[in-house]
């Protein structure tokens, strides 16, 4: 569905050139649900805007839904749906009118556009709001309307730019339910961007991590976590002397760069924490060190990002805000 090679995009900001995207290669097969994850300013949206023909790339090529984004942007537009970060419905118009207009934009006849509008109104549970203006809807309702606008022409490929940003947990879950159902029913290929780690982790089959305009990791969430972060074993001991000895013992179980200590806490990165913990405790016992507490934790995508960049995604978020 998507084949991108060497996509780049530069922006001129106050006479300086900013490389927003520095060379993206991406292939997405039909029927997949792919999440593009990265901090604000990583180049996620710029990549999406190039793939959806909103922005011409500075260099590189891409075919989307079988059409070249530069040579045949109209062909791409006819075959994809796009839900942007901002609200898609105009403030002066009524909900249903906007859906009908959207169908007409895709060349549907008036009757067909009417039918599709009603269909997506029902599908996204917006029917009671049909005659309202978008400004009178709640955040979650507006987002559902945005998604409905992206679906009127039944695209085989749907782009969603941060579909759940700024929504409360209930609305986020609701939006996700609709996205997943849509996929189950129509087999729509979905590419979405998010900076919510949990979303990428639980919803997507494949996570593409972008930082500074490049793809730095690509795979299933489980594989990224196993390969790049690993499990963590954390123990606490009585005093500093014990900490030193516990670190020494840990060196026999985990790789040297996988061991860290802070006060009376010792952390080990290991492939399988459930197996490593008993082994570590026995070794400590033999060395005469008493562990006070012990716990294991599975890695998150944030750990993956940390392992790759030395920063956490949440730090990036705070800095941007």
């Amino acid at each position: 569905m998507i084949h991108a090679r060497g996509l780049t995009r530069k922006f001129a900001v106050k006479r300086e050139t900013v490389d927003a995207v520095r060379g993206i290669d991406l292939d997405v097969e039909a029927g997949r649900l792919v999440a593009v994850l990265g901090p604000n300013g990583a180049g996620k949206s710029t990549t999406l805007r190039m793939l959806t023909t909103l922005l011409p790339p500075t260099s590189g090529t891409a075919t989307v839904a079988g059409r070249d984004i530069v040579a045949d942007p109209a062909g791409v537009r006819a075959r994809i749906g796009y839900v942007g970060q901002k609200n898609g419905a105009g403030e002066n118009f009524r909900v249903r009118d906007e859906l009908v207009t959207q169908g007409r934009c895709y060349g549907l006849t008036r009757a067909e556009a009417d039918r599709r509008a009603d269909e997506v109104l029902d599908r996204l549970e917006l029917r009671p709001l049909a005659a309202r203006r978008p400004g009178t809807l709640s955040g979650g309702q507006r987002r559902r309307l945005d998604i409905a606008l992206g679906l009127v022409h039944r695209p085989g490929l749907l782009f969603l730019d941060e579909p759940t940003t700024g929504l409360d947990p209930q609305s986020r879950a609701d939006v996700w339910e609709h996205i997943l159902r849509l996929r189950a029913e129509y087999g729509t290929t979905i590419l979405l961007t998010t900076h919510y780690l949990e979303e990428a982790d639980t919803m997507a089959e494949r996570v593409v991590v972008i930082d500074h305009g490049r793809i730095i990791a690509d795979g299933t969430a489980a594989r990224l976590k196993n390969d790049l972060a690993g499990d963590q074993v954390t123990i606490t001991v009585h005093d500093a002397a014990d900490t030193a000895r516990a670190v020494a013992v840990a060196g026999r179980i985990a790789a040297p760069d996988g061991v860290s200590a802070e006060g009376v806490t010792v952390r080990l990165r290991v492939p399988r924490a459930d197996a490593a913990l008993p082994e570590y405790l026995r070794a400590l016992e033999a060395a005469g060190v008493k562990a006070v507490t012990a716990e294991i934790s599975r890695p998150t995508l944030d750990d993956v990002f940390l392992a790759l960049t030395g920063r956490t995604l949440r730090e990036g978020e705070g800095a941007a805000a």
């Binding site: 959806t52 023909t53 909103l54 109209a74 537009r77 006819a78 994809i80 796009y82 942007g84 970060q85 901002k86 609200n87 898609g88 419905a89 105009g90 403030e91 002066n92 906007e98 959207q102 934009c105 895709y106 060349g107 945005d146 606008l149």
Partner: peptide
């Protein structure tokens, strides 16, 4: 009106249609 729709996002939505 166009400016308002530009800032709001509805123009972007229509720019992705054919």
């Amino acid at each position: 009106n166009l400016l308002v729709e530009l800032i709001g996002g509805s123009l972007e939505r229509m720019m992705v249609t054919p």
